[in-house]
Write a protein that binds this DNA or RNA. Structure first.
Lengths: 206, 206
DNA sequence: CTCATTTATTGATCCAAATCAATTACTCTT
DNA sequence: AAGAGTAATTGATTTGGATCAATAAATGAG
């Protein structure tokens, strides 16, 4: 059943979770299916959902002078939302689209606010999630401030190998903040220096 | 009285705030005074407080190869914390120090968690604050991804003029992710192009 | 007020990545 | 299996900011 994954997730996140509270969540949750290529968020839209991805892969990105600048990937067993727009209630300035056929469980802004008001545990879950996203964003930010593109590349493979292996290289480049050409050269540099810090599979997936 | 500012702030943030809840907060809050130059956080320390700045100015920064890379400024009427370390309960990898004599009201991690457990409203305040910080960090991140140093410079003056006017230029450069020399050149470029998008006072504070 | 120190500017050179331009390698689709 | 379209590589050139170096301006301590 499509809600089993989220259920397990929530019962883990909130130690005092009960069947009753879960019913409240279930009552407002919607299971949705998207196809590869579907565009979920466009600039100007106010994001009105947070979702839990059962299966699939998405990304969010800016489009500047016809060029995509990828902000984030969203993989199975994680949340998906254009959370900045969702929270600030302002129009998004990015796109989000589907990289692999996706099943997710979503709830609306209003329903979530009601849930927060109804159960302190849900409020807490909301806090913990916001805090966790904050910490993750700190990391990404630090990565941009302190690391070279090559270092970011290595790190991306360390931390997100199962995403890296499912997307074209130009998307990795975009996520790292460089051009596809630059990434290609970084890879060739790594290939030629036998100081291979990452598994060969990451370079030459064969 | 040193707590009046925070009190007003909290009553604004939480519509259902009561004197009773406020007392709970007051009981665990500590007023602290720091002098310009005091170092509050060092790499390796786990940040154990969140604070509300009554008056003063602080910054957090990385130290890489003897060079400071400023992450954030913290001005009066805002929070101060190395929130990433505070939340994740992991050692910080940055410094935080005091740029102007500062008075702030701080509470500890444990006291805050207790407060969260005791009052749903405090839990909510914690969520709202985390969400707000997330949105702000998104903005900073976007700025790094999409804007040129010159654009970031203009934006910094638009959004943080009262900070900009109190700190040396090399700190602005650091915050913008460039060297002092590069900022100096940006400024001279702006000065010579009569397309002055920012007030003269911002360039030539006289 | 003066001198020492810190900060800002300016110049010359260097470098990593961007850009522009082909070419080669994949991957779908039929 | 062939061909079209997409993705990746490689080469040549440009460029914005870094770095190194020196000077000028501002600040502050005595």
């Amino acid at each position: 059943m499509a809600l089993a994954q989220v259920k397990e997730f929530f019962f883990n996140l909130i130690p005092t979770m009960t069947e009753e509270k879960w019913q409240s969540f279930e009552a407002i949750a919607t299971v949705r299916h998207y196809k590869k290529g579907d565009v979920i968020i466009k600039p100007g839209m106010v994001s009105n959902h947070v979702s839990f991805i059962n299966k699939g892969l998405l990304r969010s990105y800016y489009l500047v002078d016809g060029k995509e600048i990828i902000v984030s990937f969203f993989d199975s067993d994680c949340y998906f939302s254009e959370y900045e727009s969702f929270l600030s209630r302002k129009p998004s300035n990015q796109y989000a689209d589907v990289l692999e056929d996706t099943e997710m469980v979503e709830i609306t802004y209003d329903d979530l606010q009601n849930l927060y008001g109804k159960y302190a545990d849900c409020e807490r879950a909301g806090r913990l999630i916001a805090e966790q996203l904050f910490v993750e964003l700190c990391n990404r930010n630090t990565s941009f401030m302190l690391q070279t593109p090559e270092e970011r590349y290595h790190r991306f493979y360390e931390e997100c190998e199962q995403i890296a292996n499912r997307i074209p290289q130009y998307m990795i480049a975009s996520y790292l903040g460089i051009t596809p050409e630059a990434l290609s050269r970084i890879r060739s540099r790594i290939r030629n220096k036998p100081t291979a810090a990452i598994p060969a599979s990451a370079i030459d997936a064969e």
